[in-house]
Structures are given as C-alpha cells and as structure tokens.
Design a binder for these strands. Structure first.
Length: 392
DNA sequence: TCTGGGGTCCTAGGACCC
DNA sequence: TCTGGGGTCCTAGGACCC
C-alpha cells in the first residue's frame, strides 16, 4: 500500500510567535537573532522583513543595512519557542500517532490510512493547519506526498500558509522543473559539480546515468541523488528518534585571549551539557572540544573516556585538557564549546512527549478540547494561543 | 559583508586484533 | 623478509540541514 506522508513547516516560526505575543509588532519588519550592532546572524525574520531581501543565516550587520528604521530586533527566547513547538507536536499527535519532529518548527506525519477517517489528502492537510491555528494561533505550510522528499518539497512550494498535495502520478511533473539544489545532499559544495556539467534542473539530473552520478558524487551520494531525481526516497516516519549528541557553544562578542575566560566559558558549557544529559538519562564516552580561532579557523578535538559520564566536572576536565594539549594558547578565540556523544549501550531512550501519561485511546482530531487542556497543563498557558477558537 | 547554535551523517587514515 | 584480508575503534574534518 502506498504511503501518504505529510510535512508541516511553521511559517517564520520565531518571528511569528513574537508577532503573535506583541500585537504592536504585527505588520512590521521583525528580526529574531543577534543584536544589530553585534556579531551573529538572522535566525528568522518576518515576511515583512523578507521583502527587503533579508533571510535566515544572513549576517545581522548586512540585514540591518537593508532594513528600515522601524524594524524590530529581538533576541531569541528558545525556551518559549520550544514550549510552543511541543504544543504543536502534541496537537499533531491527535491526527496521527506517527509524528516525527525534525526540528523545532518542522515535522513529518505518516497519515496513511487516514483517508477513511478524515477524507482526501486535501482535507487531512486542512485539518492539520486548523488544529495548529486553534491550539497556538500560528499558520503553517503543509505538503503531502508519497514520501518524505515529495512532502517536504510540496510544503516548500507554497508559503506561507500553503497547502500542496502531490499525487504519485504527479511526482515527475512536479520534480522535473525544479532546480537541482532541492535534492537532499546537494548543497553549496556538491551542487556546483553538477552545474558545471551543464545540469540545472532535477529533470536534467534524471537524464544522467547512475554510473555518471556515482563518478561525480561518490558511490553513496550518487545513488541517493539518482533515486531522489526519480521521486524515490525514504517514506519511514520515526516517531521516537533518539538524539545522538548534546552540545553547547558560544561565540564571544570580541575575540578572547584570557585563558581564565576560556575556562569559565567551558565550565558553563560543561554544566549545560551535563544538565541536559542527566535530565535525558544520557551518559556518553566521547567528549568533543570545539574552538574557532581568529579569523575563522575551526577545529575539533575529541577524547573517548574509559567510562561514560554525564558529570560537569569530568566534561570540563576532558575539554580543558584537550585545549591545553594544543598549541593554541595565546591565540585569540572567537568561539568555544563542547559536546558529548557516544552513548553507553544501556542509555535509556529519551522519554517521549506523553511519557507517564496513559496512552490515548484512538487519538482523533475530535478530541481537541481534551488535548488543549493537556497541553495547557504540561506546557503552560504561554504555549497556547490567547483567545482560543475551535476549528470548523 | 562577515560568517549563530544546534544538530546528523559520512569519509578517511591509523591503530590494533585475528 | 615480506605480506594477506577483514573488522572494529578512535580521531579530525567536512558537508549539510534548520
């Protein structure tokens, strides 16, 4: 039986939350990210700001030069955004129990078989958008297709507040005219390898033999692109993917040479990582120090410990000794941080969204009220939209 | 023009063991 | 004195994604 995969992407997520909670900022260019005078980039910006050509990951100084004086700049409040995200994921779970969050503002749902319960794909997609609007007062763009790649490209096809369904027989017509960079794994470095061959669209890539693709992209990458260009891609949705690493890093406002400041910063990172690890029930053996030296030279150094740990002091000791064994002392540091990975075999899985609660019998969108109460209880009123309204 | 922070996955060489 | 493969672990870096 063919799968039906839904991809949902919350529109301008951080910026939309800020505008939701500050009505006076609605309709104005708004940037969530670094302070306009400082170092850093745009995390997300409102659609009003995008009209000036501002995009995610653009250096904040460059964005500030383009944007008008009435622009609002806000620092990210990740704890708040994460609460909204969890509320969205919870309400999506009333549609289908197979929800895989892929980032704070994106998820895949396996909605195969829901046509009998809800209706055709268009209606399922509409329902997903409605329950999110009702729960948190935000718009989302939805794409539905036979696998994850097509669902994702469908949600990107119309934004914001879009809804696009691609049936299996429409896949090649949908894919062929797209720029080849939409395929997963063709980024800034590898896409030009194909562009140099005169290829520009997915249709062009589809015309290429498997052997040629493997020659230019490597055996693994070449095969993956060959299949994607034919609309063949992963359609498994994994509701409880375990995380593989925990890390914390920071970029200094100005480069730092004082070893005491570096050590204090690593201590902070060790405490943050240790806290997250202990609360998730993780212990890891691999400690990685990350450092970015002036002007923009990045290194990692890692050490495998004999015994898995989640201890702040052990993390700090390992990271600091990695720093000290390198001839970096005295060189100005732009960024420093550390990570923990390599979980012990017996590390328990991260508890899922509803851990500890009785399993919901047959979750359906009709149970929205009960779900909203549960969300309010777990994530606080702030996660929810004020002036709650029911979907029709 | 200056380039965040949080991740995932892959590659490749060397050590080491059988 | 020279020489196999295969497998696993460790480490560093890079590409990519949101």
């Amino acid at each position: 039986m063919p799968r039906l995969i839904l991809h949902i992407d919350l529109d301008a997520f951080y910026a939309a939350i800020e505008q939701r909670d500050h009505p006076e900022w609605r309709g104005r260019p708004l940037v969530v990210g670094a302070a306009p005078g400082g170092r850093g980039v745009v995390a997300t910006c409102s659609y009003e700001a995008r009209r000036y050509g501002v995009r995610s990951a653009m250096p904040i100084a460059q964005a500030a030069r383009r944007l008008p004086p009435e622009t609002v700049y806000v620092r990210p409040d990740m704890a708040r955004y994460a609460a909204v995200s969890r509320a969205v994921m919870a309400v999506l779970a009333t549609l289908s129990p197979r929800v895989e969050p892929v980032s704070i503002d994106e998820a895949y749902l396996d909605v195969s078989g829901l046509e009998r319960l809800i209706g055709p794909p268009q209606v399922i997609g509409r329902r997903a958008k409605d329950v999110i609007q009702a729960a948190v007062g935000l718009t989302a763009s939805v794409g539905i297709g036979p696998n994850r790649l097509i669902a994702k490209l469908a949600s990107e096809a119309r934004k914001p507040d879009g809804l696009t369904v691609v049936a299996p027989e429409q896949v090649s017509a949908f894919l062929d005219p797209m720029p080849l960079s939409v395929l997963r794994g063709l980024g800034a470095k590898t896409a030009p390898r194909l562009t140099r061959l005169g290829l520009t669209t997915v249709g062009d890539v589809r015309a290429l033999a498997l052997e040629a693709l493997r020659r230019h992209l490597g055996a693994r990458g070449g095969t993956a692109i060959y299949q994607q260009a034919r609309g063949i891609a992963d359609d498994e949705v994994h509701p409880e993917r375990a995380r593989q690493s925990i890390s914390k890093e920071t970029t200094f406002g100005e480069d730092v040479e004082d070893p005491l400041v570096l050590r204090d910063t690593l201590r902070w990172a060790a405490q943050e990582v240790g806290f997250l690890a202990r609360h998730g029930g993780y212990k890891g053996r691999l400690v990685t120090l990350k450092i970015r030296l002036h002007p923009f030279e990045t290194h990692t150094r890692s050490r495998t410990l004999p015994v898995p740990t989640a201890s702040d002091t052990e993390l700090l000791r390992a990271a600091w000794s990695l720093y000290q064994t390198e001839p970096w002392a005295g060189r100005p540091v732009r960024l420093i941080g550390l990570g923990l990975s390599g979980w012990a075999e017996e590390t328990p899985e991260q508890p899922d969204l509803f851990a500890g609660e009785p399993p919901a019998p047959h979750p359906r969108a009709e149970r929205l009220d009960a779900t909203l109460d549960a969300i309010r209880e777990r994530f606080g009123e702030g996660a929810l939209h004020r002036g709650l309204s029911r979907p029709r």
